[in-house]
Design a protein around this nucleic acid. Structure first.
Lengths: 233, 233
DNA sequence: ATCAGGTTATGATAATTATCATACGGGAAT
DNA sequence: ATTCCCGTATGATAATTATCATAACCTGAT
């Protein structure tokens, strides 16, 4: 992980996230935030947030792709969700807990913008509109997670595989051809099945000519069929 | 559903939820809320919030027990969670959506306190501390839901049944003997299994002498064994 | 270069869960 | 009282998924 000098690389003025995120915050306050924020770069695979660590910073994703996951006491890891920049990954639980109840890791090279929690809290305390916009974003993020959980839960193996493939194609890469950013094991950790069955069902989809697999690259050949599999479980 | 006259039954002064919920709100503001709030009574089985309905009110549970559930497009209902008064059921999604994305129904006779959204928003706008306390509560509620989802997800049928029985005993009724507030079907909708298998596994637990079943009444006889089943899936 | 460990892959088999069928009892409506 | 519907209950069977075993391949470490 690399800490980057603000002065050189980050210009909040041109940050398209700023306006989305810090709406209702005065220019003065934004400048104050900007001068004291820290930007961090993570390479694919690096851990951004470690479950159990104390929460000191408000972190949001500027670029990249991450996974949120939970390491239950003795069991294997479970992936909660994937998140792109606009999903504001760090919102979850930071206002209610002293320590993180989940971890975040980079699935692709990622850059975060980190602001001291004190600063966010102090701004929110004096600025109800900003606080409300925070609530709205927290809500959106968690609603999404819960609805996706329900969606996946009601499907069976093949439906879940089809669902996640379409999710990557539609929501993440906006293309029917993409490099899978996760291992088969991680897919298994997300949909709650075993690695072997994930691999098997991908192979089956390939044998049926619905997808093509070239190493890490996936190509959805018959989107209609895949969508039907996702729907009909 | 019965709308109750404020003057007669509701005294905000004695409401133990007020202090928890409206911390950081001035006495004046509380009085304003109190005079305009509406209290509603629901009988067991009645629907409190209907998925798809417009969100106009901020609703919290004063007494009773409810279930939150989601009716996916074509599929069967899925129960998201159960909630007691202090779980502040209505927080979920109300600040991010125009319409409810889930329903709420009373599992036991319940009373809600309803406040116009406008009023909450206007207070939060002018009072960052209150807004922050709202965020905290939204976070707590959704964290709980997500963690429980993960917990249930990693278990198998018997583990899930054991888990929910212990949940009712520990979190809801604080007793190893209680009337199940839900049907077998509703348990199935929560743990994501079929009714038949829920019934079967309850029967098996009974045959093994771990629980007793008298009609709707459940008695946990061997809590240790049940806890082990819940742990070991 | 070689070894260890992890990921992908496939098969055989066991375990788990769903589906279908049937039955019984209770409550609501006629 | 009778009928219908719903919830509970149980069994038989089919479908789905997990587990175990094995192997090929790749990558990082020594």
């Amino acid at each position: 992980m690399t800490v980057t000098d603000n002065m050189l690389t980050c210009n909040c003025e041109g940050c398209e996230l700023k306006s989305l995120f810090f709406e209702n915050v005065s220019t003065l306050e934004i400048e104050s935030i900007c001068s004291r924020k820290v930007e961090r770069e993570y390479q694919k695979g690096e851990i951004i947030i470690r479950e159990g660590a104390e929460i000191h910073e408000f972190i949001y994703l500027k670029s990249g792709l991450v996974k949120l996951y939970h390491s239950g006491s003795n069991s294997r890891e479970q992936i909660i969700c994937f998140a792109l920049p606009l999903d504001f990954v760090s919102l979850l639980s930071i206002f209610s807990e002293k320590r993180y109840i989940y971890s975040v890791a980079a699935l692709e090279d990622s850059i975060t913008c980190n602001i001291k929690m004190d600063e966010i809290i102090s701004i929110a305390t004096g600025n109800g509109r900003f606080a409300l916009s925070l609530i709205e974003k927290v809500n959106k993020a968690t609603d999404r997670i819960i609805l996706d959980f329900l969606e996946v839960k009601q499907k069976r193996l093949y439906g879940r595989i089809a669902y996640i493939l379409l999710y990557f194609a539609k929501s993440i890469y906006k293309s029917n051809s993409f490099d899978l950013p996760v291992s088969r094991k991680e897919i298994a950790e997300y949909i709650g099945m075993t690695v072997e069955n994930v691999i098997r069902s991908l192979s089956d989809l390939r044998k049926d000519g619905i997808i093509k697999i070239f190493g890490p690259k996936i190509e959805i050949v018959d989107e209609g069929k895949l969508a039907r599999i996702a729907e009909l479980s």
